[in-house]
Design a protein around this nucleic acid. Sequence first.
DNA 1: CTGCGGTCTCGTACGCTGTAAGTTCCTCGT
DNA 2: ACGAGGAACTTACAGCGTACGAGACCGCAG
Lengths: 226, 226
Amino acid sequence: MDSVWFGKPRPSSGQPLGLSREAIVRKAMEVLDEHGMQKLSMRKLAAELGAAPMSLYWHVPTKDALIELCLDEVYGEFDLPGPDDDWETAVRGMMHSLRHLALKHPWWVRGIGEFNSIGPNAVAMADSMFEPMLRAGLSMAAAAQSISTISSFVVGYAIAEVNFISRGGMDSPPPDLAKIADLYREKHPHYVAMLGEQEIWSLEGQFEFGLNCVIDGIKARVVALR
Amino acid sequence: MDSVWFGKPRPSSGQPLGLSREAIVRKAMEVLDEHGMQKLSMRKLAAELGAAPMSLYWHVPTKDALIELCLDEVYGEFDLPGPDDDWETAVRGMMHSLRHLALKHPWWVRGIGEFNSIGPNAVAMADSMFEPMLRAGLSMAAAAQSISTISSFVVGYAIAEVNFISRGGMDSPPPDLAKIADLYREKHPHYVAMLGEQEIWSLEGQFEFGLNCVIDGIKARVVALR
DNA sequence: CTGCGGTCTCGTACGCTGTAAGTTCCTCGT
DNA sequence: ACGAGGAACTTACAGCGTACGAGACCGCAG
């Protein structure tokens, strides 16, 4: 009786509706790229997919799991080095690729600190970093140390970079920094002086400088380690 | 009538109640150090301070602002270099101090990516990094590049480190990594081999290695830049 | 003594969140 | 024809940040 209240019992239900883990992850990535992690909510995501909130939970166990899937998806965009590249060009290429990922997906760099990166793509990336170094004759330990050092630099730099960009971009210096400069001019003159230096705001150049430093340092020590 | 319902109109109200911005920040730091940023909520924080949730908002405009205060508080624990230290020992000391802060306050390293670090203590730290380098004769640009490079490495490394520690600590390798090893043994042998290497799990040693690399690289290039 | 404006604390309420539990429907193999 | 199970939905709950407004308390002016 009640259930035949009118016509079809429920106007909206069980149609196929393209929901799938991949579709959800894809849409989630769009939201993340556009609005960042704070703004991602299961409910809004479901709405954008034309589904009810709880429908997502059939394909994904939890929100954190979904985020880990998204993080790993970004690792999947990593550019693997060519199989014949020598040690240094392989490393340089990988590190540029890493930075590129960070700039494309700021939420990703910010998030790698809060989640474990042990998805298949993350592991594949890590593995691929070893290949050229071992091929060049480094010991496992030396390769691990080198990789850890270089990618630590790149990740740290990328975090600072996306932070700086999201604060105001390339308008060297961004508007809100002007007030800060006034605030601290007397107490911390070096800092304020630095804010005024034009050349410093070349993020590209700074990255290259740092990468060169790190690679040089490693080259020098890696000989000792063989 | 109503207001004199019994005895004193309200059993709990307007007493002094040690609430203050400093007290709130102090307690918030305790919670953060113990449980991380995800677990910090204004309501629970208020409860721990014996106050009503909204009482905090007299002293602090918003939760994000409170977090920024806490972040800056950590910058305040930074060890300034001795005024007579030479370039290299000053930098080494500062970078060890930075790493120490990160290990003591994991939520802090994870959070610096999501908030602006322009509080007084953060600026003071940044400023103090320039001092020994300028004193050694570096140009502003060279000093900025060097500082950016070194501290990028330290922050990136520290993030990896707190991640690794929170995943299972020093039990080289942590338990859940055993399963991962099995999962990926065939597809990514280098990665799995790395997990098995004992010596890699010396985080202290890896940090020192990386720091040496970066400093060496900088020393070599800084001559060119003067 | 009365009134008043500042400082601080609190109660209520709104809109939002992640998700546990249970329900309904569709499709398919038998 | 019918049961099984995959997929989507509904309802509900506990928790969150915080806007708004109502007091409570204090010291000071009249």
